[in-house]
């Protein structure tokens, strides 16, 4: 995945187009009481790219994701989205703006079937009011069918057709992760945030998940920002990598640049693998 030119729009070696900046963190600082979880961090996410955030435990990666998705409001700094600073927002408003995410420890709706879970991802697209819904015939049913079609496309795409009507609580871990991805994808987000999509998976499941992430990016052109611990996966998947340590940014660039950055090697990859 050699990058040719990164100053403006460019095409990656595998032929994906990377556009301009869609989201930019500007000098974000986040404190919990006396603890500075994020210290003055800036980086951008460009349209169509896979952007990884890596760092040792406690580096502030998840906090960063929580800032993006609106759970935490930073004390300093601004989040720019689509070329304008974003006012402080509730998480559901962020979601309505087209930012979907998955969680490190799965956050599915256990009492609902896989299909219903994926359909909840469509909620931001469903607008019929209470009254039309209670009549059902007509507008509500039509909207349901349209959104069901989108949900079914995602279900096909992630190859979970067979468990469509299974209650989520009955699924194994790996499949739950996939359903959660399906739910986030069903929202047809502009930016997809993945918090450790491969945590706790075996090699085979990791390969499957990597394939899905690449396919999602390729097929739908979704911008993806992901946190991951598996270095091999991160280096193979991502176009650009942000490295954090103790709340500070210590590296930013293509996987190769990051790999050769002395600070990063010291902080994270300190132990050489050969």
């Amino acid at each position: 995945m050699r990058v040719t030119d990164m100053t403006t729009e460019y095409t990656t070696a595998d032929g994906r187009r990377i556009g301009g900046t869609v989201m930019e963190m500007k000098n974000i600082t986040l404190r919990f009481g006396g603890v500075e979880a994020i210290k003055n961090i800036s980086f951008d996410i460009r349209e169509g790219e896979i952007r990884a955030i890596i760092g040792p435990n406690g580096a502030g990666k998840s906090s960063m994701l929580n800032v993006i998705s609106g759970f935490y409001v930073p004390q300093d700094g601004e989040v720019w989205y689509k070329g304008a600073p974003r006012p402080p927002m509730k998480p559901f408003e962020v979601a309505q703006q087209g930012i979907a995410r998955t969680f490190q420890n799965i956050a599915l709706f256990e009492g609902m079937s896989v299909l219903d879970n994926v359909m909840t991802g469509r909620l931001t697209h469903m607008k019929t009011g209470l009254f039309a819904q209670s009549i059902w015939k007509g507008k509500a049913e039509q909207e349901e069918t349209e959104n069901r079609e989108v949900a079914e496309r995602i279900i096909d795409f992630l190859e979970i057709q067979a468990i469509r009507k299974t209650p989520v609580a009955r699924l194994p871990y790996g499949l739950k992760k996939r359903v959660e991805l399906a739910r986030a994808l069903a929202a047809e987000p502009t930016i997809l945030l993945l918090d450790e999509p491969m945590a706790g998976m075996n090699v085979e499941e990791k390969e499957d998940m990597s394939r899905f992430i690449l396919d999602v990016n390729d097929e739908f052109g979704t911008t993806i920002a992901l946190i991951e611990h598996d270095m091999g996966v991160v280096m193979d998947l991502s176009d650009r990598v942000v490295v954090m340590d103790y709340g500070k940014k210590i590296g930013d660039g293509t996987p190769d640049e990051v790999r050769n950055n002395q600070d990063v090697i010291d902080a994270y990859l300190g132990v050489s693998h050969d």
């Binding site: 998705s69 559901f92 309505q96 969680f103 599915l108 609902m112 991802g121 909620l123 931001t124 929202a187």
Partner: peptide, 11 residues
């Protein structure tokens, strides 16, 4: 089922 997850999908 999970109010935090509900918020994150836009509820």
């Amino acid at each position: 089922d999970m109010d935090i997850a509900a918020e994150i999908i836009g509820v």
